[in-house]
């Protein structure tokens, strides 16, 4: 079984978001407590949407280039992409509904 959450590098990231599958990206860091709290939710989303949405995590320290590109100033920040475009940016800790609502809208829209 493929991993339900992936950790792309910058090159893989660019390929991912321009592809045909919607992508949910969680910008996080090792030292960020709220990010750790969101972790189980992101993993659950990865399982729930496996095959329909790509769920990825980007460490803002490791890939500061990506964090800078999207102006990440608070983490966790989740950005949802579809065909290379940003569909939604969700800052801070939210309950799972906040993410599933956007994803379901995309998949059913």
């Amino acid at each position: 079984m493929a991993a339900s959450v992936i950790y792309p590098n910058v090159e893989e990231f660019d390929q991912l978001i321009s592809g045909g599958t919607p992508v949910l990206v969680d910008f996080w860091a090792e030292w960020c407590m709220p990010c750790k709290m969101l972790g189980p939710v992101i993993e659950q989303l990865g399982e729930q949407y496996q095959g329909r949405v790509t769920v990825a995590k980007v460490d803002v320290d490791e890939h500061s280039e990506l964090a800078a590109r999207y102006g990440i100033q608070s983490i966790p920040t989740v950005i949802i992409f579809n065909k290379g475009e940003i569909v939604d940016t969700i800052v801070g800790l939210r309950n799972p509904d906040a993410y599933t609502k956007v994803l379901d809208g995309l998949l059913n829209g």
Binding site: A29, W31, C32, M33, P34, V60, D61, A67, G71, I72, Q73, S74, I75, T77, V91, G92
Partner: peptide, 17 residues
């Protein structure tokens, strides 16, 4: 500007500044 410069938690977002 919450999350765009405004933060309530130094230990959460400090490293980004």
């Amino acid at each position: 500007f919450l999350g765009k410069g405004v933060s309530y938690c130094a230990t959460c977002d400090g490293m980004l500044f």
